[in-house]
Computed example of a mutant assay.
Amino acid sequence: MVKYTDDFKAMVVREYLEGTIGYERLAKKHGVKSNRQVRDWVNAYKKFGMEGLVRKKRDAIYSVQFKLDVLNFMKRTGASLADTALHFGLTNTPMVAVWKKKFLNGGAEALDNPKGRPVMSDKAKNVKKNQKPTQENEMTREQKLERENELLRLEVEYLKKLRAFQMDPDGYLEKHKQRYHSNSKKNSH
């Protein structure tokens, strides 16, 4: 996947906003893979300013509940990936597609798996050095049950919110709109 610099995106958006050239011609002129990409940049800029064009650092962590809310919104409203991302203040549209794919393949539990390896503390590094290679660091039965319970709680909470949304979509969205915007601002720092 091609990654464009923030300055490049800003230049393309400025050129569009000058009004002399459309999405398709801009994409061709600058070698952007699709005019949809240019449109997404323009919409993000209009809604969030320059901050809308800046990719968030990879260490941004979103809760499983937030991811479920995003996916639920997209399913219920029929919003596109880009519109959903804009609604929740997410500047990385493909991330929503990744969440959707994970959810469809593995349910809510799949959304809880962080990308990559977890960072190892100094204490854990020392313990690992002293371990025999045959020993496995497996979760105890109790830990597995606690994790399963937490995931089930999240799923029940998700289903409750889904039902509330189905009964009154406009009221639900209005009630939770402020919370989503404040959550996305917290996660962007």
Rank of each mutant, 00 (worst) to 15 (best):
G31Q: 06
K185F: 08
S121V: 08
G116S: 05
E51T: 09
E51Y: 06
E138R: 02
A79S: 11
L111Q: 09
Q65G: 10
Q178D: 13
M74V: 01
G78C: 08
M167V: 15
H30N: 12
Y172K: 12
V119A: 07
S63Q: 03
D59V: 07
V32F: 13
P118L: 04
R36V: 15
A110K: 11
S182T: 12
D7T: 12
V127W: 01
L71A: 02
K125T: 01
R55I: 05
E24D: 10
Y158A: 09
K175W: 10
E15M: 06
K185Y: 08
M50I: 13
S184G: 01
L26F: 12
D6C: 03
R147W: 04
N35I: 02
K3G: 00
L159S: 01
D7N: 13
K67G: 05
Y62H: 12
I21M: 14
S184P: 01
K47A: 15
A44R: 14
N137E: 00
R163A: 08
T134R: 09
L152E: 11
K100G: 00
N92C: 13
L173K: 08
K186E: 02
N105A: 10
K67M: 14
K56E: 10
R36N: 14
L53S: 05
S182P: 00
V96K: 00
G107S: 15
L104Y: 13
G116M: 05
A82C: 07
D59G: 03
K75I: 06
K144F: 02
T20D: 11
K144Y: 04
R25F: 04
T20N: 15
R55A: 03
Y172F: 15
Q166N: 11
R147L: 06
K160L: 11
Y158P: 05
A79H: 03
R39D: 10
T77V: 07
K186G: 00
K33V: 15
V38W: 15
K161G: 13
R179L: 08
R147N: 02
N183V: 10
R58E: 14
T5A: 07
Y62Q: 01
P133T: 00
D168H: 09
A27Q: 09
M95G: 05
S184Y: 08
S63T: 13
K132V: 03
D7L: 10
L151P: 01
L173F: 11
K144E: 01
K56L: 08
K185D: 07
E148V: 03
L151E: 02
M50F: 11
Q37N: 07
S34K: 03
V13C: 00
Y23L: 08
V2F: 01
H189G: 13
D7P: 00
S80D: 04
K175A: 11
S182M: 09
R147M: 04
N183H: 12
D168Y: 05
K75A: 13
E150A: 11
P133I: 02
S182N: 06
L86H: 06
E148Q: 06
A82D: 08
K33D: 15
N183R: 14
Y172S: 12
S182Q: 10
E109H: 04
V119C: 02
N130F: 03
Q65R: 14
R141N: 05
N183C: 14
R153D: 13
